[in-house]
Nucleic acid binder design. Structure first.
Lengths: 338, 338
DNA sequence: CTGAAAGCGCTAACAA
DNA sequence: TTGTTAGCGCTTTCAG
């Protein structure tokens, strides 16, 4: 491909002039600039970002580091929608986006810093990492600006974006109580997720506010998996047939829970009301359709990118953003019939 | 961050030696190599891919160029699953992956070649482009190796990966005929998609094979959109109440079609059998669950990457790959009751 | 307004 | 086995 020298040669000027002309500097004759522009076009020239980055020591690139980019993610689309948000925002602001995916195997080979340094990303958005992941420590020690998604930790160079998990969960539980339910169980994710802790707190808060005492036997973990949730729900409902409502920490687990209830011969929603969390596509297509707490994953990605770029550009900002959730009433919740 | 010179200085050798030591060349004393390795580790050094790429004139990077990376893609997950396949394969083979997303606005600003040259991708996988997109011409003229997804065009540097659309469609139609249906309509996508043409051909082929004559009034376009499909299906079923079965060129359109039928007071599947195409997640959760032609989008991405890298490495290969589809019987199809 | 020269971090002949 | 030199394509002083 054509390089800046090819353009310079053909235009009969120096590379310096070409560089300045094309980059919009004012100290270049408009005639010369036009001539250079025309020739650049003719030669189908476009500057090598590689070379430019090398000399400018700036890549204008952010990395979306995803731990566990797997096809299973299709079911909740979390990663994809975050990606869309990041991509759109980065595009608007003129940042390049590189997708870096890791898994425990890859992490053995390369440290977080290596990954970032190699590709010279200026900042990182981190998604899908568990709180006990060794990368998390590295992120906090590293001075590469980073925005965590759904992990509320801050430092000089690290911020986060999340949704109001506690509030969302509380809303869900209050909704169930308002429908007359007293024995409300929770299918949570796992203890390595901040969102699980928050949602549990919200569950407890909702019960307390409504004057219902918390029963720890009513809380089980479904690991955010549909199958595990199905299994755990089956056990739970067998052991505690008095339960009339379920709050699930994810829609996907709610799907599993509903299947479990059906298999146990329960009618939904008459025998069991279920609220999910996420508002994934499936939730409006299942039968019964699922009442849920909606969180805007696209905006999560978009806001993360906004925050990160502000950080990169040295703007003084709040290093975190908490998005609101919204309760969506569908068919899976109804009045307590017992 | 530490550069190769920092390592060289600290190790008391030249940068050349460091380079050779770290890159596993044999002509370096093992003792020196060890020493250098230790120091590199201490300094947390990792080579700049930028600088390396610049001098080697090789980036080992492939681009996944997606036209229309939008949140709506969540519904069928096509892009996401292709991305997973590409990512996994690229990872295995040691290629970096950059995600390049365009839309008609961006395409005004930058040509395909510019996009590729700037980022110095060695090859491209192209997804989501319509057959009348101006980029397609550029791709064919460009000498950057490229694999098209679902567009069966070949040239010296261009190949493609697709599924057996015609065969899949034919299977779907034959299934319906075998259930006793005679008046089988088709909700197709749009004429700018190769897959639509192929699936139409398969639909026609299926009918012909079973001795049923083709009626062009039975074919409408739903633009691959749920809403359009719903609208078109409503019109179609009103006009032709004799229709008892529908073949839809995508599951998403099948969802729209089923909704239309329900709103018209039809019982599914008794009054109308529906077959979709894709096997998206939704298809197994809807009610009735959707009989469909499954295509493996992950493998589409994986195979595209395999093909591309072979092309890049100058291996003599078939420049196309057609994946088989599979028919999946669910609840939405049943015997003709008329 | 324009050009010469230096250098970003790295690899690759070519010498030693 | 190691070092010297050149150069990838670009931007940026600093002179003119």
């Amino acid at each position: 491909m054509a390089t800046i020298r090819d353009v310079a040669k053909k235009a009969g000027v120096s590379v310096t002039t070409v560089s300045r002309a094309l980059n919009g500097y004012s100290d270049v004759n408009e005639k010369t600039r036009e001539k250079i522009k025309v020739i650049a076009q003719e030669l189908n020239y476009s500057p090598s970002l590689l070379a430019r980055s090398l000399v400018m020591k700036k890549t204008k690139t952010i990395g979306l580091l995803v731990s566990g980019l797997r096809i299973e993610g299709s079911k909740d689309n979390f990663t994809f929608e975050v990606l869309c948000g990041v991509n759109d925002c980065a595009g608007e602001l003129g940042y390049e986006l590189v997708l870096i995916s890791t898994d425990s195997k890859k992490q053995q080979e390369k440290t977080y810093n290596q990954l970032c340094n190699e590709r010279k990303v200026e900042g990182v958005i981190l998604q899908g990492i568990k709180t006990d992941d060794p990368y998390l420590d590295e992120v906090l020690k590293s001075d590469i600006p980073c925005i965590l998604i759904d992990i509320p930790i801050e430092s000089d160079s690290v911020g986060y974006v999340t949704t109001d998990n506690k509030g969302g969960a509380q809303t869900a539980v209050e909704h169930l109580v308002d429908l007359g339910h007293k024995n409300i169980a929770m299918i949570n994710g796992h203890s390595q997720a901040f969102v699980s802790r928050e949602r549990l707190a919200g569950y407890q808060g909702g019960l307390k506010k409504k004057g219902i005492s918390y029963n720890e036997n009513y809380v089980v973990n479904g690991a955010f998996l549909e199958e595990s949730a199905e299994l755990e729900t089956t056990k739970l409902l067998r052991k505690h047939p008095e339960i009339t409502a379920l709050f699930c920490a994810s829609d996907l687990m709610a799907m599993g829970a509903m299947r479990a209830a059906k298999k146990l011969g329960k009618k939904l929603p008459e025998d069991l009301s279920v609220v999910g969390y996420d508002n994934i596509i499936l939730s409006s297509y299942s039968s019964p359709s699922l009442s849920t707490i909606a969180q805007d994953r696209y905006r999560l990605g978009f806001e993360a990118t906004t925050l990160l770029t502000k950080l990169l550009e040295g703007k003084e900002v709040e290093k975190n953003k908490v998005l609101q959730t919204a309760f969506i009433k569908r068919e899976s919740t109804t009045e307590n019939h017992r």
